[in-house]
Amino acid sequence: MRNTTTNLEALKEYYGAILHGSADLKTSACCTAGEGLSPRMKAAMGNVNENVLSHFYGCGSPLPPLLEGCAVLDIGCGSGRDAYLAAQLTGPKGSVIGMDMTEEQLKIARDNLAWHMARFGYFRSNVDFRQGYMEDLGALGIADDSIDVVISNCVLNLSFDKRAVFGEIFRVLKPGGELFFSDVFSGRRVPSRFHSDQVLHGECLAGAMYTEDFRRLLRDLGCFDYRVTSSRRIELENPEVERTVGMVDFYSITVRAFKLSNLEDAREDYGQIARYHGAIPDWPHFFDLDDEHRFITGKPVLVCGNTASMLRDTRYGAHFTVEGDRSTHFGPFDVRPPVSTVGEGIPRAGEGESTSAGGCCC
């Protein structure tokens, strides 16, 4: 098997020299998506230069709400599509760092910087593109506790040291900060013989994270609970690739995780209640925290301790009222409401409210 340096050079070659546009991709794993976007997001996409769009490779639109004024880091920004979307959503008072290891991709992003700032009506750029490696964000001058939101689009799977990547992400996030990313996951560990295959790795398959290994990795880094906002199985749509790696089931998943010190490794019941105010842009009638939790505007919902913390101790806190604390423990949190709860008319989060939400992967 080739060493890590050789594999990285092969990835750079794949994205910098072999692929000249999204049409050159050999599978649908790293396709860009526009479906499921809100009218505001579609309008923002319309402000992105066509040259940037045609050279962008991603499996979703991992942009959470409430980015205005935030410091955003886009890991593996490529030609800059999501960075330029985030630049519009943060507004001129926010900032976006787009980092990537591929010089050719960053050249496209940088060459279009002035065009985008003029298009957005910004007198000063709020985007900074930096070349480097996601395993060492410190080398790019990104300090501890300096980023509000980290986004990434079908890139983290490419790393040969995912522990280093996620360790760096949680280092640079501010307390209460959010990691929101779309990527390719697998239902089993991808056989090691494929890890150095240039095409399979470049197509985001060889490095796909086995979901249970991902859970264990975040747990080891101190993040005991993450949420899935959307998930769908990937159809490879390439007979040759299917014959090679078809024994593995691949999924495009969008994940939300927070840098919170009080998350527990199981969902516990403290009798806490959350009410959504209905004021998050694009979410006037309900808000989907994940694919299990839909909060109807004004409706009281019983939530576990972890969900209460995600809603109260992050930038979402201004948009929710969370009643109760962790002073009294009632046992494991069960999404199935007991009879007494139904009688009180307060449903538990997730009960009868499940939905697919967030930046859907293609």
Rank of each mutant, 00 (worst) to 15 (best):
I151P: 07
S152N: 03
S152E: 06
N153A: 02
C154S: 10
V155K: 08
L156F: 10
L156G: 00
L156E: 01
L156Q: 06
N157P: 02
N157W: 00
N157Q: 09
L158N: 06
L158G: 05
F160T: 15
F160S: 12
D161T: 07
K162F: 05
K162Q: 09
K162W: 09
R163W: 04
A164W: 00
V165P: 02
V165T: 07
V165N: 05
F166L: 10
F166C: 09
G167R: 03
G167S: 10
I169L: 08
I169C: 11
F170W: 15
R171T: 04
P175F: 10
G176R: 12
G176F: 14
G176S: 14
E178R: 15
E178M: 15
E178K: 13
E178N: 12
L179N: 11
L179V: 13
L179T: 12
F180G: 03
F181P: 03
F181G: 05
F181I: 15
S182L: 12
S182W: 08
S182K: 07
D183P: 01
D183A: 01
D183M: 00
F185Q: 03
F185T: 00
S186E: 10
G187P: 00
G187E: 14
G187W: 04
R188D: 14
R188H: 07
R189T: 12
P191N: 12
R193S: 09
